[in-house]
Structures are given as C-alpha cells and as structure tokens.
Amino acid sequence: MSALLEVEGVSKRYHGKRGTVVACHDVSLKVEAGEVVGLVGESGSGKSTVASMVLGLVEPDEGAIRFRGRDVRECLAKDRIGFRAGVQGVFQQPRAALDSRRQIGWSLMEPMVVHKIGTRASRERRVDELLRAVDLDPSLANRKPHQLSGGQLQRVNIARALSLDPELLICDEPVSALDVSVQSQVLNLLEDIRERTGVGMLFISHDLGVVRYLCDRLVVMYAGRVVEEGEVDVVRDTAAHPYTRALLGAAMKVSVRGAVGVEAAEESATTPPREDLPRDGCMFAPRCAMVRDACRTGEPPLVEIGPSRLTACLRHAELPPMDASVFA
C-alpha cells in the first residue's frame, strides 16, 4: 500500500535576472492516509514551493510527486477533475482566496458545479451543511466576502476545501494572518475535521506551537533542503540539527512560557542569512556554531537516526544534549 502523498527527490529552480534561485533541492517527504505532517522553516526555505508542487500548480524540475501511488503529472493529464477532488488547498490570505464579487454560497457551490455533483437543491443543502460544519451561520451564504471577518473567511475557505471530501488538505500558513483568539478557533476546527473525516494534511507553518498542536510528524526545511524530520515532541526534545535548535530557541524566546519561566537561553544562530548561501556543503554552515571543514564540502546526506527520524547534520552525534531545564 503506497502512502497518500509521496514527494521523492523533488527539486525546483527559478531562473531570474540576477541568477538562479534554488527554491527546493532533493526534497522527499511522505504523508500517510489520515496523518498530519507539519512543514516548518523560515521564509524562503521552500515550504510553499513544495505546497504548490503537490497541488500541481508548479511543475518540479526533477523528482516525482505521487498521490495514492500515481504521479501527479499523470493525474493532472488524465484525470484532472478527480485529482482536484482528492487534493485541496487552504492558503494564508483568506480574503484573497475568495471571489470578492460573489456571494459566499456561490463560492462554496462552485466546486460542486465544476465536478457536476448533485442538483441545485442538493447543492444548496450541502452549502448549508458545510457552513454548519465550520461553525458558521448558514445565513452567511448570502453575504459577500467584505462583510465577513478574516476568521470567518478562513472557515469558508476550509469549508470549500472540504466540499468535495478530499483525502489530502494542503494548508499553507492557514492561521498566520489571524489573531491569537481567532487562530485558536480555526485550529480547533481543523483538529475536529481531522478527527471526524480522517483527512490527511500537509500543514505549513512557521509557528512551532501551532505545528505541535495539530501535527503528528514534523519536517524542517532550510534553504530548500529537508534538514530534519521526526515526531514533533521527539524533535523538540532531541533536535538533531543546529538549525532546528535555532528555530526552537527563537520560538521559545517569543513564547509565553519562555519569557516567564526562564530568561532567554543562549544566543542561538538565529540571524537569517544575509550573505549569499554557500555554493557547496551544508547550507547552514555560515550560521552554524558547530561547523567544521567537512561541512563546507559536499551536501550532507539525510541520514536515519531512529524510527522515522532523519537529520542532515554531519555532527548530529556530537551535538550537546539539549538542556531540559531551559526548555521545560
């Protein structure tokens, strides 16, 4: 039985006036049916490029993406409609994702019209049902996007993504634009949906707290590469890549708990790359405190260091133990 989603050795380069940008390089990841996988990293790490490729919006230069064992390119060529019903996206800007001139009900019905599902009456019933499923009043179907708040609109987007009963949701920073209290409601909703429908998710975020709430497994990207992978709490407690540790350190510095409990831990290498990335070796080397000569030549391989636990750090075995008292 193949995984719900398999991304295998995928690379994407963009060619611009000022040279070529490697958006992602040799990225592999898997989402099993019903699993929620978090993808984290800073802006420019290639998270959204991966999302766009999985959705079939961007074609990879190399590698393969398979949905239920079938290549996405093939799915799009032979059964575009079926593929779209199976994989849906929720994006960061709830307002930009909806047609501002159309009523909410129309936007929710459109996928059913395109996919020729049901009659007019049954579609209307379904819109009602969908709005209720995301805790919205069905009367909102007659409103236009400008009459709704950001949190309400994001619920509408989630409802629309669910309208065709997809097996996989690609969520690209779905709560980053929302307030803490609104964000918590949308996260609760996603957790409910996941329990109720068993939909698999690839959940992109830069907020590790959010990822921990929702995800089973975590994939960390840096400069277009996967640098670490594992179960969320395991990665948190035994991060095996210096970049992941920097990310955890930064998250802790801005976490409620961090500031109250302990004063910020050691200054970690959290300054984002100002200088150009290295041409060879580990992309994190210029920012890494553990760097040695071997890190600067040849791409460090992603090695297995435990059950479904990967790291791309040559020196992962030598990393000091994480200070539990600082992170507790």
Binding site: V180, S181, Q183, S184, Q185, L187, N188, D207, L208, G209, V210, R212, Y213, R236, L248, A251, M252, S255, V256, R257, F327, A328
Partner: peptide, 17 residues
C-alpha cells in the same frame, strides 16, 4: 486569551481557548 496560545512545551492541549 492565554489558553488560546498553542504551546510548544508542557502537556498536549486538547482544545485551545
């Protein structure tokens, strides 16, 4: 408001806020 913040540490939160 404080209960609505997803935390990286401590026991897993079942509901937020």
């Amino acid at each position: 408001l404080i209960a609505a913040v997803p935390l990286l540490h401590g026991p897993r939160q079942r509901r937020l806020g």
